[in-house]
Amino acid sequence: NQASVVANQLIPISTHLTLVMMRSEVVTPVGIPAEDIPRLVSMQVNRAVPLGTTLMPDMVKGYA
């Protein structure tokens, strides 16, 4: 099972991601792979992401 990136807190819209905001967890459905966490740092979310939500490629500007 592959770990995905999950929000560690509420991430407001247009926030630049930091390591503190993300954790890796095995979830269904599978989202952005956990090994991409370093790549996600300083990218922006294009919507509010609630605590515990799996980050999907379409939620992060410039990821997909």
Score class of each variant (00 low, 15 high):
1 N>E: 14
1 N>A: 14
2 Q>Y: 14
2 Q>N: 14
3 A>Q: 10
3 A>G: 13
3 A>I: 07
3 A>S: 13
3 A>T: 10
4 S>V: 02
7 A>D: 01
7 A>S: 10
8 N>E: 07
8 N>R: 08
9 Q>C: 09
9 Q>W: 06
10 L>D: 15
10 L>M: 11
11 I>F: 01
11 I>Q: 00
12 P>V: 05
12 P>A: 10
13 I>Q: 15
13 I>Y: 12
14 S>L: 14
15 T>N: 04
16 H>C: 09
16 H>P: 15
17 L>T: 00
17 L>C: 03
18 T>P: 00
18 T>A: 09
18 T>D: 06
19 L>E: 13
19 L>C: 07
20 V>W: 13
20 V>F: 15
21 M>I: 03
22 M>T: 01
23 R>H: 05
23 R>L: 05
24 S>I: 08
24 S>F: 05
24 S>H: 08
25 E>H: 08
29 P>Y: 04
29 P>C: 05
29 P>E: 06
29 P>M: 05
30 V>N: 14
30 V>H: 12
31 G>K: 01
32 I>K: 00
33 P>N: 11
33 P>W: 09
33 P>E: 04
33 P>G: 06
34 A>S: 13
35 E>F: 12
36 D>G: 04
36 D>T: 08
37 I>F: 02
38 P>M: 09
38 P>F: 10
38 P>S: 13
40 L>I: 12
40 L>F: 01
41 V>R: 05
41 V>C: 05
42 S>Q: 11
42 S>K: 11
42 S>P: 00
44 Q>L: 07
44 Q>W: 05
46 N>H: 07
46 N>S: 11
46 N>L: 15
46 N>C: 07
47 R>F: 06
47 R>S: 09
47 R>M: 10
47 R>W: 06
49 V>D: 02
49 V>I: 12
49 V>A: 04
49 V>F: 03
50 P>C: 07
50 P>I: 05
50 P>M: 09
51 L>Q: 13
52 G>H: 07
52 G>C: 04
52 G>I: 03
53 T>G: 11
55 L>F: 08
55 L>N: 01
56 M>L: 10
57 P>M: 06
57 P>S: 10
57 P>H: 09
58 D>P: 06
59 M>I: 05
60 V>Q: 00
60 V>M: 05
60 V>D: 01
60 V>F: 05
61 K>L: 14
63 Y>W: 14
64 A>I: 11
64 A>Q: 10
